[in-house]
Write a protein that binds this DNA or RNA. Structure first.
Length: 155
DNA sequence: GCCAACGTTGGC
DNA sequence: GCCAACGTTGGC
């Protein structure tokens, strides 16, 4: 089992939006980056844990935790021309884009800001804290996971 | 297969 | 709103 960090813009979809879902579970659609897709397709398994990260906002931060409900399956929004993430070139018999279902676990009382993570020497290898990072799903090592939990006051 | 142009992400 | 980083596209 692995650990992950998954980004979402809170104005579009925040951790509170996930909490508001039935069974606090939702699908994580809209991933349109091959590397992020490959992580979902090849490495995510049921029971994996992921940080919920708020990006592109006033205070970018890890705000909570969720679990991966099951393995990746086709993202239906790629086939809907009304959708922002419509992809006319995706073959219907071999869908290009996948998504996973996620279930809310907890919100951190102390969110862990990007700024705070950048100040941690122990986290300096994380792709998240490196300059120019644009990947919306990132693997998190065991050590990084524990360290961020500690920063969140969760340990 | 190279690489310039272009589009998107996301911190600031 | 700016702009650096970087992924994708398409002409050659």
């Amino acid at each position: 089992m692995s650990y992950w960090l998954m980004k979402s813009e809170p104005e579009t979809y925040s951790i509170d939006d996930l909490v508001a879902q039935p069974r606090k579970t939702d699908h994580w659609d809209g991933i349109r980056n091959y590397q992020a897709r490959n992580f979902m397709r090849d490495q995510m398994v049921k029971g994996d844990l992921a940080f919920f990260y708020h990006s592109n906002c006033a205070e970018p931060a890890v705000v909570g935790m969720m679990e991966i409900v099951g393995k990746a399956y086709p993202d239906h929004t790629q086939f809907d021309s009304q959708e922002k993430y419509f992809d006319p070139d995706s073959p219907s018999d071999n869908p290009r884009w996948l998504m996973v279902d996620v279930r809310f676990r907890r919100k951190f009382s102390n969110i862990v800001t990007l700024r705070a993570m950048k100040a941690e020497k122990r986290l300096s290898d994380m792709r998240l804290v490196q300059r120019g990072n644009r990947l919306s799903i990132l693997p998190v090592s065991d050590r990084e996971w524990r360290h961020i939990l500690k920063m969140a006051g969760e340990v």
